[in-house]
């Protein structure tokens, strides 16, 4: 079992993006040939912190200006020269704007490029629907050779970046802008292809990823007060998905709720449904964006407005239990 944040850590709020630049610098300190490629957002994504960590890292950050397609393929070229190349930008531009580059060069050639943008999901907040990427897990998940990681918090983001850097080939690491509560203890190590049971339960399974993991844990607390025992699983590795852990859980509970800060079409919930349909068809409720764009607002307001908060998960669990 992975180590979770203790009471004092759990009060600390940090954005997943805050792990980006500093973790790249640590990996470079350890001798990995890290390069970061940006599209005029090195400050926002925090890759500037990588460049600033040591004088020799300055020339390992390539800012392409506002040119995301070039960013991906420059990273491809850098990887072909022996580097581990991380690309940045916001998730909406860093995946969608450069999809063909990610498909036809990074994935088709199976290059050592890590697509690691920040500012995914509605947690971007006031910038509104144009900037709230809610389709990226779907876009990245369907690409052959791509692995997809959606870390829940700062420590999980550190572990995910580390995992992507240390495993050859294409990765997508999804990070957010908002400061969110800590789920994991410092220095947690996460394995490729593993999902983690963070809280055992018997009545329903909640599979979550990203910022929804913390909401799922809150929902489990709320449900416990009503005598409902929910098992909470962090499926931070959406691809390859840990089907065994999820199946083992639903064998026990008989139903599942998936929760993600993403369209309910094509994301982690769909991945769980695909897997369960093949081996153990299970009643499922989907918490996520209901096939719509986001809008401006504070993150917490939007989370409640769009039905992505702990209350929405709590209600979905009750619905799915009724369907057993």
């Amino acid at each position: 079992m992975v180590k979770l944040a203790d009471a004092s850590q759990a009060t600390e709020k940090l954005a997943t993006r805050a792990a980006y630049g500093t973790t790249l610098a640590q990996l470079a300190d350890e001798g990995l040939p890290i390069v970061a490629v940006e599209a005029d957002l090195a400050g926002s994504t925090t890759t500037k912190k990588f460049a600033a960590a040591k004088p020799e890292y300055e020339k390992r950050l390539f800012d392409c200006g506002i040119a995301e397609q070039n960013m991906i393929d420059v990273a491809a070229g850098l990887s072909l020269a022996g580097n581990i190349a991380f690309t940045g930008s916001f998730a909406v531009f860093g995946t969608g704007r450069a999809y063909d580059q990610i498909r036809n060069t990074v994935c088709y050639s199976r290059l050592n490029v890590k697509i690691a943008p920040t500012h995914a999901g509605i947690s971007v907040g006031p910038d509104g629907g144009s900037h709230q990427m809610l389709e990226d897990i779907a876009l990245m998940r369907v690409l052959p050779n791509m692995r997809v990681l959606v870390p829940a918090d700062y420590a999980a983001a550190q572990a995910s970046i580390r995992l992507a850097a240390q495993t050859p080939g294409p990765f997508y690491v999804r990070m957010g802008r908002a400061a969110v509560p800590r789920v994991y203890a410092d220095g947690v190590e996460l394995e490729l292809g593993r999902a983690y049971v963070l809280r055992p339960g018997t009545d329903a399974t909640i599979v979550a990823c990203g910022v929804e993991v913390e909401q799922a844990l809150k929902a489990a607390d709320m449900l416990a007060e009503e005598g409902i025992s929910a098992e909470v699983i962090d499926a931070f590795c959406v691809k390859p998905l840990d089907v065994d852990t999820i199946v083992a859980s639903v064998e026990k509970t008989g139903c599942v709720v998936t929760a993600e800060e993403h369209n309910v079409y094509g994301g982690m919930g769909s991945a769980v449904a695909e897997a369960l349909a093949a081996v153990r068809p299970t009643p499922q409720e989907f918490v996520g964006m209901k096939d719509r764009f986001g809008k401006s607002g504070a993150y917490e307001e939007l989370s409640a407005y769009f039905g992505l908060d702990a209350k929405a998960i709590d209600e979905a669990v009750k619905r799915v239990i009724a369907r057993k």
């Binding site: 490629v37 070039n70 491809a76 070229g77 850098l78 022996g82 580059q101 060069t105």
Partner: peptide, 16 residues
């Protein structure tokens, strides 16, 4: 895409 890939590769070779 080829010119971008080539540019990244040229930058990488120079870096090495």
């Amino acid at each position: 895409q080829g010119l971008s890939i080539s540019a990244g590769m040229a930058a990488g070779l120079a870096l090495n």
